[in-house]
Write a protein that binds this DNA or RNA. Structure first.
Lengths: 185, 185
DNA sequence: TCTTTCTATGCAACTCGTTGCATAGACAAG
DNA sequence: CTTGTCTATGCAACGAGTTGCATAGAAAGA
């Protein structure tokens, strides 16, 4: 499991509350690791009782109070140890691919709209990543000499961008294939 | 959930036992949907008691008997209905990306070996996919006029190939970044 | 002969992840 | 003044997925 570790990395980058973490998991960290707020709250509790992170009650005006978490010494050790352990290369879970193969036993043309929808979603995601890259790394306001953390965040984001571009090209290929099949029926 | 649907697709392509399905989930279908044999046996049981699939006891010599499953009419309906429902575009789960961002708080150079290991694994997977493509789709023994099912299987495999190529290029980018960071410490 | 490997199926326990629901203060729009 | 939205936290129940273990016949190799 790596949700704990993803949270440790995020809290090292910047301490925050469960709510703030769940927002980060909708962007930034969430580009390559997803989690719902319920999951995050549950895991934060366990991490705190295990001494990996510290809590600080922060009163706020015009808002409910929050609990700000930060990484404790033990949490740093846990993360460091995990970083030195090998992990398995990812295995994919691509529901759309199951559908595409399933289309052979149904109407392939009926899938076109669905694939177009996915194409649009990935186009949006790519635009979002590129805007983030310009804002934080390649634009005029970006740091001229990025530190290690920024360079590593950038290379991860470049991975997301490459993934979306590859996916869009593949979805074009899928659409071509479905359209070629369609008229024959 | 789509394990049921992945199993339906696989059984439509060719009926088989739980054991055979679990082997297919290590190749072919497993390229984009993973499942362990325990998961498969459990789901097969539920699908059978729900009337989605039929069982046939097949005695074998030199081997334990097996239960061969095939898709029932109800299963075809269920699959067809699922194919017409929209699904969410995939969200990624990339443990290595968490590690890379985490490396900012540890020794980036220590990750190089790990990334190289992943590079090797993806190189192997790509070679495996390309061999499968040559065998089934582009080689001399491939069908000259592939049917719809074969064309759809091929486009899914092309997706796997594109994914591996993209990943390898990104891992090269990651290695460059880590090596540039290393000497500065 | 003994160990290992392959085919073949399955239970039990556990962890991970999702979904639905609940609470509660503050603010904005209608 | 009511409804909706945003911040903020959490419980309970369920479903999905993993890990460990067990059984059992046959073949292959040491």
């Amino acid at each position: 499991m790596a949700l704990e570790h993803a949270i440790l990395v995020s809290l090292l980058e910047k301490p925050g509350s469960g709510y703030e973490l769940s927002r980060r998991f909708e962007r930034s960290i969430g580009y390559f690791w997803t989690a719902t707020h319920q999951q995050i709250y549950r895991v934060l509790k366990r991490m705190e009782s295990d001494g990996w992170i510290d809590v600080r009650e922060v009163p706020q005006q015009a808002r409910p109070d929050k609990k700000e978490y930060s990484v404790a010494a033990l949490g740093r050790d846990v993360l460091s140890q995990w970083l030195h352990e090998p992990i398995e290369p990812e295995s994919v879970r691509h529901e759309l691919a199951v559908k595409i193969r399933g289309a052979a036993f149904d109407d392939p043309a009926a899938l076109i709209r669905e694939v177009e929808r996915h194409h649009q979603a990935h186009t949006d995601r790519l635009a979002h990543y590129l805007a983030g890259e310009r804002r934080d790394f390649t634009g005029p306001k970006a740091p001229a000499t990025p530190d290690a953390g920024q360079q590593l965040q950038h290379v991860v984001l470049r991975g997301g961008i490459a993934y979306e571009r590859m996916t869009l090209a593949w979805l074009d290929d899928v659409l071509d294939t479905l359209r070629r099949l369609g008229p024959e029926r």
